[in-house]
Nucleic acid binder design. Structure first.
Lengths: 253, 253
DNA sequence: ATAAACTGTTTATGGTATATACAGTGTAAA
DNA sequence: TTTACACTGTATATACCATAAACAGTTTAT
């Protein structure tokens, strides 16, 4: 039996699980991984992921760039760590006494909110199936929405994949909208995206027969709707997913 | 009326639309944007996105790094261009005489295949709503699956969002699986992901009550299934989406 | 007391994207 | 034909970046 601490994990992942032994000798540490993560998130929130560099993070904390490497193996690991950090949803909303549809709605909503609070989240490419603690907490919470349902494990995982993928898609678009609004566009006159005017000249009815009417009507760039529009669209797609799941549950009886 | 060529577009986007004027004077160009794009894709396909640098691309073509800047404004633009380039699905499969469910299946399949053929695709963060020609071709094709359906433009866009987001989620996971298999893991004995052993020691039933059984059964890391498993999972989620859409269509009657 | 193991820093290396200045080249206007 | 110009690809230079290596100081175990 292998009772190893699972050290074949990437170092950044091992760090996030707290699997790093700390020997006693040597001076006390003046920094902590948490401080580094917090500082990095603050920079990324304010100025975007491109503003994050090792020296920038370090100087924010009053240290040199190289000092960070006593705590974190590489910048890529740091990015994984901040991605995992913002997945911490410890104080999760009331979810006890609601049906599975409402639980799934809340799960998707929570996932989207992470992206909205931290738009850089989506700029960090997903390297694979989640294996970090808070990300797995999210998966756990997603699975919880299916706890009472008569589904096998594969079915449950597929549903979580469905929901989280949808949340990611919505988060991406809502991030766009938020950014456009913040950039000073009045929702009333131009709540759509910045390039809708140009697109309308480029998208022809010949080359894009099905996109053309949707673009012209403003539905593609969400022009003629208030800020809650995407919220509505978001809800629409989600309800279709939930309907599909419900239909499947009924078909199994 | 503004009959401008829509020059408020980002330069890389304008390039992809062929909106760049070409004056007559000066020496003939020895390169072309297409050559650059092709060379970049070839490098990325073989060695991953991290192997792509301006000098690497240029030297592959027998030129200096700076020469590329006579064709492409920046590396970021180049990445957008290759992302759009592989979205070219001109020879699209038979889609004429099939019902909408089958059309949607084919659309999702085509989207996933792009990611499988070009695993770097998902490593390029999506900057926003698609505005490049081939990406819009994909959107157009997605909308086409809804042509015969009694839906308004917003409903159609929501459905395309649903389908493309799901394709992206599946593509991500299938990319993982492919990579693991290529790395030499025998599907029979260990078709799961590399870290499932470590995870099983870290994910406790207290902290992850709903994930724990799923992980232990092997469903999370897809251990005990052949390579086509994800194909099955992929199909499962998609059928739920389609059921949900069908349910909605019926409810409108 | 001493050696070991750690700390943060300094310095150095090789990489990156890309601004700028340049010499050559083909076309358009004189 | 001459000349001016707008382009070409290149060479050079800048400023950044991640991070390896060497270092001097500090705490603890022996």
């Amino acid at each position: 039996m292998e009772h190893q601490n699972g050290d074949n994990l990437p170092k950044g992942v091992a760090l996030s699980w707290g699997l790093i032994k700390q020997s006693q000798r040597g001076p006390k540490r003046e920094l902590s991984i948490q401080q580094i993560i917090d500082a990095t998130i603050e920079i990324a929130d304010k100025e975007g992921l491109s503003a994050v560099s090792m020296s920038r993070v370090a100087s924010t904390l009053g240290f040199t760039a190289m000092s960070l490497y006593r705590y974190i193996p590489s910048k890529d690991d740091l990015l994984l760590l901040i991605q995992d950090a913002v997945c911490d949803i410890s104080p999760l909303a009331e979810e006890a006494d609601s049906d599975w549809r409402e639980k799934m709605r809340q799960y998707v909503k929570a996932s989207i909110e992470i992206i909205q609070k931290h738009p850089w989240f989506i700029d960090i490419p997903i390297s694979g199936v989640p294996i970090m603690p808070n990300q797995l907490k999210m998966v756990d919470r997603g699975l919880r929405t299916t706890r009472e349902l008569p589904l096998n494990d594969f079915e449950k995982m597929s549903i979580v994949l469905l929901l989280s993928g949808y949340a990611r898609s919505c988060g991406l678009i809502m991030k766009d909208m938020d950014r456009a609004v913040q950039a000073g566009m009045k929702p009333s006159e131009f709540s759509g995206l910045a390039y809708s005017g140009a697109l309308k000249e480029l998208v022809t009815s010949d080359g894009f027969p099905d996109l053309y009417p949707v673009l012209m009507s403003g539905a593609y760039t969400e022009e003629n709707q208030a800020a809650n529009t995407v919220g509505d669209d978001f809800a629409f797609g989600l309800e279709r997913i939930l309907d599909g799941i419900e239909h499947y549950l009924e078909s199994k009886k």
